[in-house]
């Protein structure tokens, strides 16, 4: 059986959780077995996991799972995996998944691969593929143990939504006492967080100063995109640090990445080169970013960006 830990928040299964379920379902069908989703904490409709592919759902509604603690959560997940004799445990390669996966591997005596980018080959053991060297290569890893733990890279696949609600088994599992005390969460309101964003508008030092970001925000708003920036921009406090993408910032893989006034240094590319489509706007035709781009515009960003925003508005108006 494939057990997938489906992350939830605000009473719903998160997008990363939906992706993990679909991945687990596809893996289960390759391995000729079934897919069970595990949900920790209160959600409104746990059976919805079936929509994304789960055959059944184990729901642990205990309110003690309101705040994340890798120690007690890993114990709960591994207890369920052991009692159901799961061969595979699938997680999202999210902030929670990253804190859990090593613990689960240790608890289950399982081999693990993090940040898997495609469905594993299970024709002869389990061989999973993941990005290494910060996007400069992919490695295939064979898991040598009977039990296996995998975390799925965000946007590695689209969640399917053609399933129906799955039967739910309610479990009375309670979390072990956490040794971490939750204090608070600070979140940027209103936008999709960068690691989950499908469209990202990113800008660099070519912007000249923080006062010029209005045109970036307008473009992002028109596209429904999340904003990002290069490292020197965050380091100079032109933009908040959580917008910094690249080798030392966040690694993302949106469907669309628009890079504006960013030169395309290798450390920047390391965080964004897995984007599906890259558009580069730069006045210097020699900027290295053009080599990594699908579409390029050589021009002054202060003229090109407002024009692009306008063109998108026109397209939307035309339907």
């Amino acid at each position: 059986m494939v057990l997938v830990f489906a992350e939830s928040g605000d009473g719903r299964i998160k997008k990363s959780g939906q992706e993990a379920i679909t991945f687990a379902k596809e893996l289960a069908s390759r391995a000729g077995t079934s897919c069970t989703a595990l949900i920790l904490g209160p959600v409104d409709a746990p059976g919805d996991a079936g929509i994304y592919g789960a055959d059944q759902v184990i729901h642990v509604p205990h309110t003690g799972f309101e705040h994340f603690d890798s120690q007690s959560w890993a114990r709960a997940i591994s207890d369920v995996a052991t009692s159901k004799d799961a061969e595979y445990v699938v997680l999202s390669h999210s902030s929670r998944g990253k804190a859990l996966i090593g613990r689960l591997a240790v608890r289950l005596q399982a081999g693990s691969v993090t940040g898997v980018t495609e469905l594993p080959d299970v024709s002869n053991g389990c061989v999973a593929t993941k990005g290494v060297y910060s996007g400069k290569a992919f490695a295939r890893l064979k898991i040598e143990t009977g039990k296996k733990v995998l975390s799925v890279m965000g946007n590695a696949l689209q969640p399917t939504t053609d399933g129906v609600a799955a039967p739910v088994e309610v479990s009375d599992l309670a979390p072990a006492t956490a040794r971490i005390t939750f204090v608070k969460t600070d979140k940027v309101e209103g936008t999709v967080p960068l690691p989950e964003a499908e469209k990202v508008v990113s800008a660099g030092r070519g912007m000249k100063g923080p006062e010029n970001w209005g045109i970036i925000e307008e473009l992002a708003a028109e596209l429904g995109a999340t904003t990002a920036c290069s490292r020197p921009v965050a380091d100079s406090d032109w933009r908040p640090h959580h917008e910094h993408v690249g080798q030392t910032g966040i690694a993302i893989r949106p469907n669309l990445y628009i890079a504006i006034g960013i030169s395309g240094a290798i450390q920047h590319l390391a965080g964004v080169n897995r984007s599906k489509v890259i558009v580069v706007i730069n006045k210097d035709p020699e900027a290295p970013f053009f080599k990594a781009a699908d579409y390029g515009v050589v021009g002054d960003l202060f003229e090109v960006v407002p024009r692009l925003t306008e063109a998108i508005r026109d397209m939307k108006a035309a339907g």
């Binding site: 490695a139 699908d294 397209m315």
Partner: peptide, 29 residues
Amino acid sequence: PRTSITGYTLPKEKEAVRLIDPENMNELV
């Protein structure tokens, strides 16, 4: 160890960038 690397691949070479006239953003859209 519990896993072993069986091989590596390099990402597909990007095709050459498609340049778009900066005056014509309707084309990019």
